Simulated scan of single mutants.
Amino acid sequence: MKWHVHSERELYRDRWVDLRCADVELDDGRRLDHRFINVQAGAGAVVLNDHDEVLLIWRHRFITNAWNYEIPMGAIEPAEAPIAAAARETEEETGWRPGPLRFLMYDEPMNGLLNTCNHIYLAETADHIGSPSEGFESDHVAWVPLAKLPDLIRDRQIVGGTTIAALLMAAREHGV
C-alpha cells in the first residue's frame, strides 16, 4: 500500500532538525496526519587495525541516559562529499586519521519517522594524529576486538542501529 502525500507543513525548524506534518492518504481513502523529521545526512567510518580491532568512541547519550560504543559519525556539511565527511568526523571524534576509505553500506535509520540517511565507509588502517578535536563527543576512544562485538551488542554496550549494522558488515567481511 502506497501512501499518497497531499501536503506537508512545518511544525518546528532549527539548524539541526525540521519537524513536519504530512497530510497522507492511504489506498483505501483514509487520510491521516503523519509527523516526520528531516535531519541532515550523516557519514561515518568503521576503522580497523592489524589486530582485528575496531576504533570506537564511548559516549553518553542523554536522551536515553545510557553509555554506549559507537562508530565515529556525524553530519555531512553542505557541498561536502560523504567520504570526506566520514574522514573528517573520524579525525575530529577520535584523533585518528583513517587510511583509504571504501564504501561499506548505506542506511536510512527509522525511515518511518526520519527523512535522513547515513553513508558508512571502511578503513583498514589509521594513523594517530593527536587528541580528538571534538573532545566533548566522547568519554574516551578505544580499539575494541571484533570478536567481542556480539557480546557488546548483547550486553547493550552497542545499541545504535547504524553502528550495529556497520560493525556486523565489517566483521562479516573480515570473517569474524
Rank of each mutant, 00 (worst) to 15 (best):
I120E: 04
A126H: 14
G135K: 13
D127M: 14
H128Y: 08
A123V: 06
H119F: 15
E137K: 12
W143K: 01
F136K: 11
P145L: 06
S138M: 08
H140C: 12
I120W: 10
E124G: 09
E137I: 07
P145I: 10
H119L: 11
T125L: 03
G135F: 13
V144E: 03
V141W: 01
S131Y: 00
V141M: 02
H128M: 08
A123H: 04
V144M: 02
D139N: 09
N118I: 03
L122I: 15
L146G: 06
H140R: 13
A142C: 00
A142K: 05
F136C: 00
A123F: 09
S131N: 04
V144L: 03
S138K: 04
L149K: 06
A123C: 06
W143E: 06
E124K: 07
L149D: 04
P132V: 11
F136L: 09
D139H: 07
K148E: 14
L149A: 08
V144G: 10
G130M: 01
S133A: 10
S133T: 15
I120Y: 09
K148C: 07
E134S: 11
A147Y: 06
V141P: 04
A147S: 14
I129H: 03
S133P: 01
D139L: 02
D127T: 15
Y121C: 13
H119R: 11
H128W: 10
L122C: 09
N118E: 02
S131E: 07
S131K: 09
L146Q: 02
I120T: 13
A142N: 01
A126M: 15
D139I: 05
E137W: 01
N118Y: 03
I120V: 15
F136Y: 15
H128D: 01
S138L: 06
W143S: 00
S133G: 02
G135P: 04
A142R: 05
G130P: 02
L146R: 05
K148Y: 07
V144W: 03
L149N: 10
T125G: 11
E137S: 12
S133I: 09
A142M: 01
D127S: 12
L149T: 10
A142Q: 04
S138R: 10
S133Y: 00
P132N: 12
I129A: 02
G130A: 11
E134Y: 09
V141N: 05
I120S: 06
S133C: 00
A126C: 15
E134A: 14
L149F: 07
P132R: 14
E124W: 01
H140W: 08
A142D: 03
N118W: 02
H128R: 13
A126R: 14
